[in-house]
Amino acid sequence: MRGRVPRRGVRAADGVRAYGLIVGMWVRSTMAYRLSFAMTAFGNLAATAFDFVAILLMFSHVEALGGWSLPEVAFLYGTTSTAFGLADLVLGSVDRLGRRVRDGTLDVLLVRPVPVLAQVAADRFALRRLGRVVQGLLVLGYALATVEVQWTPGRVAAVPLMVLCGGALFAAVFVAGAAFQFFAQDAAEVQNAFTYGGNTLLQYPPSIFAKDLVRGVTFVVPLAFVNWVPAMYVLGRQSPIGLPAWCALLPPFVAAAALAAAGLAWRAGLRAYRSTGS
């Protein structure tokens, strides 16, 4: 039991295991208030449903938005919402980091023999966030059933891959945002601009936005790789900023790079916290 020096891989496995243990505790805690859980879970589903209703209302007046039909927009909506919902479910709680720094409860996590990120991610794990995932999947199902696409094995395989890589990209944004809160504890809302804001952005076709904005979310904050870029391939469309077709293969690599960068940012943030204590 004593004196083991865990190597990096062991540490990662340790983190996942600790995450699972803590999540289990939160799920059981939630079940202490079943009615409240049911209401907030439904609320979460309804909250996300409302913004799709708004899109449906738009389409009650037009045939296409920015040249994209309703099933195509629903495809964008379904993929980003499911991906974002998964990231939010798994580690959406990291946006409470600033609060933990302010009230000093982060210190409790620092004296346990498990990675802090795993503990912060599992903190207040809320199963009710499944509401968003479910709603995203419902819209995605509707899109897949109605969209006019020549389905090839490649395109079929691309859809689940999009959701997974998209989830990883949003996860990277969550972690990077939390790392930023080590330096600005009150700035939790900035993160919302990239998480919730990114999700809203990606629900609409890229063709309606200014090209510089599209370039920004492609090359700076690479959220375009959640669905805009791979959707070019699945739906057989041209990129509005002239990206070559092979870019549709990039999401797994972009996601891995984003996660690595977010991990470095997290480590830098934690190191800064431990040297300043605030």
């Binding site: 004593r2 208030y33 409790v108």
Partner: peptide, 24 residues
């Protein structure tokens, strides 16, 4: 340098910050 390794060998009680699970 070795915070997590040390964590297994020390116990800490923060008077005001609980490590217990409120609802369980």
């Amino acid at each position: 340098r070795e915070r997590t390794r040390l964590a297994r060998r020390i116990g800490v009680v923060f008077g005001q910050r609980s490590t217990l699970w409120w609802d369980l």
